[in-house]
Computed example of a mutant assay.
Amino acid sequence: MTTSSRAGVPDMISIGIILGSTRPNRNGPQVAQWVLDTASRRGDAEFELIDLRDHPLPHLDEPVAPMLGPSVHEHTRAWAEQIAPFDSFVIVTPEYNHSAPGVLKNAIDHLFAQWADKAVGFVSYGAGGGVRAVEHLRNVCGALRMAVVSHQVAISVLTDFENYTTFTPGDRHTAALNTLLDQVVAWGAALAPLRQPSAETTLAHS
């Protein structure tokens, strides 16, 4: 999904915004749509929303670890084809019991090569802003050879949602999001030369 490049540096990178909750009555779609709407006003990258509800995956059921061999199941191959073209990601996650949703961790665990040498940033929400979920995800994504940007957007369901249901982002959240996007775009572009030779590897592991 990257446009033409100069010496391995893309003119326009593509960033997937992953909505990491699949629960009924979830607040995630409002947050993810706000991220997409804010990001789409930029001119330095292309953005697309990826909803995990559209990609139901069983608990990791591949007989070989994703980093070691090709996937045998069609659901994994379809997920790999969705993720592989993107240059970087923003993950929107709630916090469940001091961690990230199991469905999000499972989706991440299904792949390896499709994540490697890409940047990732986090927008989290929860009673405490979702920060503990992101602390776990930083370690997970680092193990997958992703560049985890330092900035984070933390949204409180206690103060940033009317009646705990309607998302009302303040100016400080928009400013924080733009800083996060600056970092994801910059790192996504900087890592492009490392991704150039990975096409064959990506196919082999999908």
Rank of each mutant, 00 (worst) to 15 (best):
R53M: 07
L49F: 02
W79E: 06
W79N: 10
G126D: 01
K118E: 07
T76S: 15
A116P: 12
D87E: 13
A80H: 09
D51Q: 00
H110Q: 15
P70Q: 06
P63I: 05
A45D: 05
L36K: 10
Q33E: 15
A107S: 15
S88V: 11
K105V: 15
Q82S: 05
V123N: 02
H110S: 14
A84S: 15
Q33H: 09
L104I: 04
E48A: 10
P63N: 04
I108C: 10
W79I: 09
P101Q: 05
R42G: 07
A116Q: 13
W34G: 07
E48W: 00
Q33N: 15
I108S: 05
L68C: 06
P70N: 12
S99W: 07
D51M: 09
A84L: 01
L52E: 05
L49Q: 01
L60N: 09
F47E: 06
R26S: 15
E95I: 05
H75L: 09
A39I: 07
I50V: 10
G129N: 03
L60Q: 11
A100M: 13
D87M: 04
A80R: 07
W34T: 00
V72S: 12
A80N: 05
G69A: 10
F112P: 04
K105H: 06
P63R: 07
P101D: 09
P24C: 09
L111A: 12
P24N: 11
A84T: 14
E74A: 14
P85M: 08
E74L: 13
G121Q: 02
V123C: 00
W79H: 11
R77D: 10
P101T: 08
E81D: 14
K118N: 09
D37K: 07
K118S: 10
G128S: 13
E95R: 05
A39V: 06
E62I: 08
T22A: 14
R53Q: 13
A84C: 03
F89A: 00
N25K: 11
R77S: 13
E48V: 01
R41M: 09
V90F: 00
S99F: 11
L36Y: 04
E62Q: 14
F112R: 06
G121M: 06
H98L: 13
G126V: 06
Y96L: 10
D109Q: 08
L68D: 14
Q30P: 01
F122P: 08
F122G: 01
H59R: 01
A32E: 05
R26E: 00
E81G: 08
G129L: 02
I50A: 01
R42L: 09
A80P: 11
D37I: 08
H98K: 12
A100Y: 13
W79G: 12
L60T: 06
S40M: 02
G128Q: 11
H73F: 14
D61N: 14
R23K: 15
V103H: 08
